[in-house]
């Protein structure tokens, strides 16, 4: 359908973006790749008065090496992120998760920061950000702050980014563990029924430490912390499968057309075992 009439502002600095959000008032919204926002506007599920386009802000584009971590501008496209050598070297899990987002056309427009800010519980990137211990730089009228991944995702489509704020970038501590993102979906372009993002530190065939993020098992991406603990010391497929039996512990899976909650929980267990085995090479 046709969206309700809105104003469009393209800005080139963070300060301009914050000023534009402020003058636009309550209904002003950031638009990044538009791949989640435009469908919402076209269905008239949201009727913002102003859209502030952050795609022209240099600071929000590209990936840089910060020594111990890499920093990814929030307006970098999925395509740019998954093909970036720094991401592939130091945050492979993010590249793996991003590569499963929708299709090439959408990955060329949609942005990874946009996906994180949008925080769809079925989105693929948040689980990877959790597993990689990402931290987020948020700018607002009162300056900048940094929020850890565990405090970033608050609820369905809700993050620590306030309505008058903007996500500038996110940083990922360099990680050379084995990694794998396993997405269970019905078609190649469909959203995840369940997704599992796993990074595993294996030494001498034994798992020393693991971090696992789950997609679509709760109102936000969540860590499978019971599995993470149970995996320490695992050295066989059977060990991993046993640990993965806890994948649904503490989750709040919902039921929808593609999966009822009990099936989602079952899938979480099966897919977690497979993702960890693939990441660990066990």
């Amino acid at each position: 359908m046709i969206p309700v009439e809105f104003e469009y502002v393209k800005v080139t600095t963070i300060d301009q973006a914050i000023a534009a959000l402020k003058s636009g008032g309550e209904d002003a919204k950031i638009i990044s790749g538009g791949q989640s926002l435009l469908p919402v506007l076209r269905l008239r599920m949201a009727e913002p008065s102003v859209l502030v386009d952050c795609g022209g802000i240099d600071e929000m584009l590209g990936v840089r090496d910060d020594g111990g971590s890499i920093t990814i501008g929030a307006a970098t496209t999925h395509h740019g992120v998954m093909n970036n050598p720094l991401v592939q070297k130091h945050a492979l899990l993010l590249a793996q998760a991003t590569a499963t987002v929708a299709d090439p056309a959408i990955r060329h427009r949609g942005t990874t920061g946009g996906a994180l800010a949008h925080a769809d519980p079925a989105g693929d990137v948040p689980a990877a950000a959790l597993a990689l211990n990402a931290s987020f730089v948020i700018a607002g009228p009162s300056g900048r702050r940094t929020v850890d991944a565990k405090d970033f995702f608050l609820d369905y489509f809700t993050t620590a980014v306030g309505p008058d704020e903007i996500l500038v970038s996110f940083s990922i501590p360099k990680c050379d563990w084995g990694s794998h993102y396993s997405k269970f979906s019905r078609t190649a372009q469909a959203w995840a029924i369940v997704g599992v993002a796993a990074v595993v530190n294996v030494k001498g065939g034994v798992i020393k430490e693991a971090r696992i993020g789950l997609t679509n098992m709760a109102p936000t991406a969540v860590r499978a912390s019971t599995v993470e603990a149970a995996l320490v010391g695992a050295s066989s497929a059977a060990d991993i499968t046993a640990a993965a039996m806890h994948a649904a512990d503490g989750t709040r899976a919902t039921s929808d057309l593609h999966a009822k909650a009990d099936y989602r929980e079952h899938l979480a267990r099966v897919i977690t075992a497979r993702a960890v085995r693939a990441a660990a090479g066990i």
Binding site: D103, R186, T187, A188, Q189, A190, W191, L257
Partner: peptide, 16 residues
């Protein structure tokens, strides 16, 4: 109709 959009009414693409 619960499958009222192409997000819920699944049609395959060549990739599937």
């Amino acid at each position: 109709l619960l499958t009222a959009s192409l997000a819920d009414y699944l049609i395959p693409s060549a990739a599937d």
